[in-house]
């Protein structure tokens, strides 16, 4: 394994680890949930992405195997991280905030508080909203 390949793999490992550490540190440091939400959703995607790229590069350089199934994990995390953040934000709005504390859109209100068109008020919300 050449020095260059080793340097690249080591750099990717260190970048990944540093971003993961920063993400976790941000979650401790930020004062409340909405600002805390920013730290892990961003810093960890590059954190895991860095380690996965390091794994691809390592197996390519050391064993000569072109192993790209690591991409599958990063693809899955890139798809799921926004959904997780969205759900946590919605749950936070539902449990802590009132509609008046947020900027009000023209037309109908936010879907966490307002029911979509066609639903009678006072009824249980339909099953397929969310």
């Amino acid at each position: 394994m050449s020095i260059l390949a080793e340097a690249i793999v080591s750099a990717l490992i260190i970048i990944g680890a540093v971003f993961l550490l920063v993400g976790s540190w941000g979650m401790i440091r930020m004062p409340e949930l909405m600002t805390r939400l920013h730290a892990p959703t961003k810093a960890t995607t590059l954190g895991v992405g860095g380690t996965l790229l390091a794994s691809i590069a390592y197996f390519l350089a050391a064993e000569g195997v072109f192993s790209i199934h690591e991409l599958l994990i990063s693809m899955f995390l890139f798809l799921s991280a926004p959904i997780t953040a969205h759900f946590l934000a919605k749950a936070y709005m539902h449990s802590r905030l009132k509609a008046g504390e947020l900027p009000r859109p023209d037309g109908k209100g936010w879907s966490t508080y307002d029911k979509p068109a066609g639903v009678e008020s006072g009824e249980a919300p339909p099953r397929d909203t969310l």
């Binding site: 920013h38 934000a89 919605k90 109908k108 209100g109 979509p116």
Partner: peptide, 21 residues
């Protein structure tokens, strides 16, 4: 959600506005 300092939080009930933090 994935880009600089913003997280999308909710969609208005008529789907015409996005709430971003």
């Amino acid at each position: 959600t994935m880009t600089p300092g913003t997280v999308s939080c909710d969609l208005s009930a008529d789907g015409r506005h996005l709430l971003v933090h």
